[in-house]
Each structure stands twice: as structure tokens, then as C-alpha cells.
Simulated scan of single mutants.
Amino acid sequence: MTEALEPVFIGIDVAKATLEVALSSEPRSSSWANDEAGLASLLAYVEGVGERVALVLLEATGGLEQPAAAALCAQGYAVIVVNPRQAHDFAKAMGHLAKTDRIDAYSLAQFARTLNASDRRDKLLLKPAEPEQQELLAIVMRRKQLVGMHVAETNRLASMHASQRKSIRAVLKALEQQITQLDKDAGRMLKDHFKDKLELLKGLKGVGPGTQAVLMGALPELGRLTRQEIAKLVGVAPLNRDSGNFKGRRTTWGGRANVRSALYMASLSAVRHEPTIRAFYERLVAAGKPKKVALVACMHKLLTIMNAVIKSGVPWQPGYPQHATA
């Protein structure tokens, strides 16, 4: 009776072609294709374990993990997606020096058991995104891909034989049309589904449509967490590196790269056009901070301002610095 009620922890190693699944209660892992049919089989397999499933852990794999994570969340399972660095460090600590899909899946299952006992478990749980957030994020990701393709084709144009330049220009024109259409789609989504939140940020300079689309699609936690939590989630919080007598420089790492990139561009603009951020940046530089460090601090401040404004429901006004520390 006791054995039947023992919790089961699941680790899923996600690759482009496969989903390798390990259960803490089973000696062998299972594998399915990373497609719709394979995902349906995975859900049926996990459902067969029943209520014993305590936690499912996946490693972030460039977005490849998102369909499986979202589907498991939708079925009511507790799901955590961890940073690859954390997963690899845990595997090494457990003595898993070799690396295969099967070993990685079992290591994630062991990691799931550890995280389940942590007091941070609930904070780490994946919150299922709303359908409109998923659609907006897909638009943002596709736009980024097309912009990358546009840059690559532009770089080829100068060195390409004259006979092929017409082809490249045709591709560039098609890419530009697609990017323009995606911008229109993103604008429509922002207006239809995120108008209330964006109205609160209307007076904050530097936060343009591109940044808004990334924030609304890729950061649904905005306005729900404390300033410390949201900064760590995005990866702009300075982290201590102290041990014994060693006092290391504070650094930022991890977090959501797409949100960080959008914040970087927004901060570059805000440093020039938003008085609150410009004054903060100039004060740091005058105090001797390197410009790069000062800009990262501006990213942190801009994020915490937006988080506090949305959390409070009070529209941003430059005369209210308390928004930055709420």
C-alpha cells in the first residue's frame, strides 16, 4: 500500500527529434518522437502513472521543450523547466560524468526529487501561458528568425556574383513583407489583449512596440512578482560570488535571453529619452561605474519600474520614483 502511494518524479530530456522520459520508479527510460503523435503518447504514458506524479522536470532546450511543458501543465501536472547550466551542474554533482539522453533524463528525474523537497518549489513551477500569450510569443520568435535571415541575405549581397543579386533582392523583399506583416499582427494582439497593461506604461519612454510584444508574450509574470523575483527571473539581478575571504564581483547570468535582449534595446533608448533612467545612468557613470555596468543597472531599474507599475495598477509618471522600488 505504501509503495503504491510513493510519489513519482519524471525527467524529460528534450531533443529536436526525441523526448526521452525517465521515471524515478522505473529502471528503464522510454522514448518518443518530438512531434504531435509523440507528445500524445507521452501524455498517455504520464497519465498511466496517475496521481503518483509529484513533479515533472525538463531542461530548457532553445524552446523545443515548450510544447511538452505546456501540454503537461494543461493536464494539471506540476512542471518545472530548469536552466541547462543548473541541470548539468546537478548531474556532475550526482556523478553522472557520461552524457546520453537516457542519463540526462534520469538525472533530471533525480533533480526533480530534490527540487520537490525545496521550499522554492512552488515559485519555480511553470505557470501555463494564456493562448494569446502563446500566439504573441510565436509572432515574436518568428520575427526574430526572419530578421536573422534578412541580415544573412544582406551580408551575402555584396559578395555575391552579379547574376545572383536579383535573387537575393527578391528574397530580401519577401522577408521585409513578412516582417511587416508580423509587426501588424503583433500590434493587433497588443491592442486586443494587452491594452490595459500597456496603458499603464504609456508614458514610459523607451518601451516601444517591439519591447512590449516581448514582455507581454514572454514574461507573463510581469506585475505578479516582487522586484527581486522578476529581476532574477529575467537574469538582470546582480548575484553574489563570495566565499570565505573572497569577495567576487557581482554578475548577472541566466534568465530569459529574449526578454533580456529586448530590455537592452529599450534601455539604450530610455537612457537617451526617459529622464528618470537618464539621470540614473548619468549618476552611476559619474560615480565611476563602467558604462556597460551602468546600462545593465538601467535594464534592472526599467524592468522593476514596469513590474511595479503593472502590479500597482497606477499609470507611470516620472514624478513617482517609488514605482522603481515597489
Rank of each mutant, 00 (worst) to 15 (best):
D122A: 12
L146S: 06
R113F: 01
T154W: 07
R52N: 12
L126E: 13
M265G: 02
E65W: 01
I103D: 02
D119A: 05
W316S: 07
L136K: 01
P84A: 00
A129N: 10
G254N: 03
L42N: 11
L200I: 07
R52V: 12
V207S: 03
L295R: 00
Y45E: 14
F111M: 11
V207E: 03
V81W: 02
L182F: 14
V79N: 00
S269F: 00
P209D: 08
N34K: 10
K292M: 03
R113K: 08
H88F: 07
A74W: 07
Q145E: 15
Y264H: 12
A15C: 13
S107Q: 01
T276E: 04
R52F: 13
A44S: 15
E36F: 08
S312Q: 10
Q134N: 10
C298R: 05
T154G: 11
R241P: 04
K197S: 11
L233D: 01
S159A: 12
A162E: 15
G248M: 05
K202C: 04
E176G: 15
T180C: 06
N34R: 10
R142E: 15
A174T: 13
Q164N: 10
I10M: 04
V309P: 08
L219S: 09
Q164V: 07
V14T: 15
V46N: 05
A324W: 10
D242V: 03
R272S: 11
Q66R: 15
Q228H: 09
A68M: 05
Q145F: 05
P275W: 09
A152M: 11
P67K: 06
K173S: 12
